[in-house]
Design a protein around this nucleic acid. Structure first.
Lengths: 193, 193
DNA sequence: CTTCAAACGGACTCGCGGTCCAGTTGATTT
DNA sequence: AAATCAACTGGACCGCGAGTCCGTTTGAAG
């Protein structure tokens, strides 16, 4: 078992997460926030930052994870409609809606994570894989089994942050309207009623 | 009116386009192809390359455009099912299928273009805007007008290269199967028959 | 043949992610 | 309380690639 993290290390981790969280949300273009910026804002050396989080993507994911923890808990064992006791179809729609809502509430950092052109595509990130697995599972039994994975991708493709932001900006849709339209489109894919 | 391009300039443009075209297709990871690589392969200075195409994205788009020219012509005034005389619904499905086919046939460069994290998202690239405008136009009259643009985005989201490649790799789907499934999903969105 | 705007090329700058390592510090042992 | 030392720290440093600069060359026009 790994030994407990040293006190200064723990303190620095918190400082870095807090600084990164603020910076990425504050910057008008989050893509321009550099690792040096984060280190400076956290009052920490760059080496420390990389030691803790490995690389830029690691830091981004760590920030993202702290924010999504609550939602994850609600999904794993919360009350309906997100929790596991909800019937598949209803839960799927609720999960998709929650995903859209969450991404909009955290759009800056979501943008950085989704359009970061790292070697691996967004579809291979842990968070997407998790969501996709869950969706696929719920879809098994609702559609031809062989199509569950594909349908999961199709549904999740409506929640890509660039698409969401584009619709809000070019269509002048409110978030409410957007969420409603996505629900409707998803309903059409799942077969209405 | 702009004066005719000098002979050496024209020659270099061709050399660069040819070199870039080959390089991006040949490299196992097209993202690793640098501008210096292209310049070297074309037997041209880096300055020349930037003078002709502005920046990396400009070069990529130029290569892409030479490849897509044929398809564009077939759409603008070719025979059915791509050409303008085809009924809207049928044409939409044909256009979507042609898009998927084209991207798969040119996947390396499509990948670079779609996941290049330049300031602007892929949804703002000239080619996407064009496709989206055409789709939106065809959808007007088929769906509630206010939904045409959104439906166009939804349909085109199935043709994103990362999604296509993911399905081929993880589901072990053939290109034929993939195209069939996308057609089916699109049909469901448009309302069957 | 002269002229010169256009084009050329490659050395150079710049910014950023990531590494390195000499010095520091917090837990543990005696 | 002191000694010990692995973990941690910070910031100088490195490598790389996009994009710029500018002294030199060249093709076309007269």
């Amino acid at each position: 078992m790994t030994v407990r993290e040293r006190a200064d290390a723990a303190r620095n981790r918190q400082a870095i997460l807090a600084a990164a969280s603020t910076l990425f949300d504050t910057a008008e273009d989050p893509l321009t926030v550099t690792m040096d910026d984060v280190a400076a804002a956290a009052g920490v050396g760059k080496g420390t930052l990389f030691r803790r989080f490995g690389d830029r993507t690691g830091l981004l994911r760590a920030v993202f994870d702290t924010r999504i923890a609550g939602l994850m808990a609600a999904i794993v064992d919360g009350p309906p409609p997100l929790g596991p006791v909800t019937p598949a179809r209803e839960r799927l729609l609720a999960l998709l809606d929650a995903t859209v809502e969450f991404k909009l509430d955290n759009r800056k950092i979501t943008r950085v994570l989704e359009q970061t052109s790292e070697r691996a595509s967004f579809l291979e990130s842990p968070n997407y894989l998790l969501a996709h697995a869950l969706f696929t599972d719920l879809l098994t039994g609702m559609v031809i089994p062989d199509r569950a994975a594909w349908t999961a991708h199709a549904l999740l493709s409506f929640a890509r942050i660039d698409l969401l932001e584009n619709l809000i900006i070019t269509q002048l849709w409110t978030e409410t309207r957007l969420r409603k339209e996505i629900q409707d489109m998803a309903g059409r894919i799942l077969g209405h009623k």
